[in-house]
């Protein structure tokens, strides 16, 4: 178990919690590596029937923690490549994964939501991909999002940037279930319990079949996506916009 990702298991349901609540569970390189290791370990555990992915504190995940790696092209590339592997690992789990989204799921955080099979959130949550506002290309998430909500809606969401409310996100298909905020975790657990009632072999076969129908979501595509995103983040447009964003955060005019 890692301190960045905590793990609880009960009755075949494993809950992985992102554990950096002081920075709204921003995805640092270390956190992404820890999450990847946790998912790989859980994937090989034959007693697991459902995975729930959640965040400690008030926010599921505020996106990539780029501050420490902004000027380090190698680390940036590693970060995006590992995140793409996390998403593939979630897609390839032999059992369903549910994201339990409280507060916000932004950028890479919203990517984690869409890599899971199901996502439960609440109406007041903020979800979305503001990458283009910051000069970043959300290439890693695009193939998954196209599959999740269709090419037209993916185009609208990724090109217009910004964030949308939880209820609208549910209408658009970003999340699959809406629950009142205080009941979020019990709702995710109820869904997990329903899934546990199904045959594990049937669920595994169904997930395999669904993955086969998404041939474009593969290692090669995700590698190219990570390379593209990493390359564009290194260019002046993104560097300037991100630095301006960090300065605003330091002044306290935007959330951490």
């Amino acid at each position: 178990m890692s301190e960045l990702v905590s793990e609880q298991a009960r009755d075949g349901i494993v809950t992985l919690s992102l554990n950096r609540p002081d920075v709204r569970n921003a995805l640092s390189l270390e956190l992404i590596h820890s999450l990847h290791a946790s998912i790989e370990r859980v994937a090989s555990d034959t007693t697991v029937r459902v995975l729930i992915l959640r965040g400690e504190g008030k926010v599921f995940c505020s996106g990539m923690d780029l501050r420490g790696v902004l000027s380090d092209a190698k680390k940036m590339g590693e970060m995006l490549h590992t995140l793409s592997r996390v998403m593939l690992a979630l897609r390839r789990l032999p059992f369903p994964a549910i994201a339990c989204v409280r507060g916000a799921a932004i950028g890479g955080g919203c990517g984690l939501l869409n890599a899971c099979d199901l996502g439960v959130t609440h109406a007041e949550a903020k979800l979305g991909y503001p990458e283009v506002d910051l000069g970043i290309c959300p290439a890693v998430i695009a193939p998954l999002l196209i599959r999740r909500i269709g090419a037209g809606r993916a185009r609208a969401i990724l090109l217009t940037g910004g964030v949308i409310g939880g209820a609208e996100a549910c209408q658009w298909g970003l999340a699959t279930h809406l629950a009142p905020e205080p009941e979020l975790e019990s709702s995710a657990l109820a869904i997990a319990n329903r899934l546990c009632a199904g045959g594990p072999k049937a669920l595994a076969a169904t997930k395999r079949w669904l993955a086969e129908m998404e041939p474009e979501i593969n290692d090669e595509t995700m590698d190219r996506a990570a390379e593209l995103s990493a390359k564009i983040i290194q260019e002046p447009e993104a560097q300037q916009r991100l630095m301006a964003r960090f300065e605003k955060r330091d002044r306290g005019t935007v959330p951490p």
């Binding site: 283009v132 506002d133 910051l134 000069g135 970043i136 290309c137 090109l159 260019e235 447009e237 993104a238």
Partner: peptide, 9 residues
């Protein structure tokens, strides 16, 4: 939006 990011996206 960032022109570079928008065109690439």
């Amino acid at each position: 939006k960032g022109p570079r990011a928008l065109a690439a996206t």
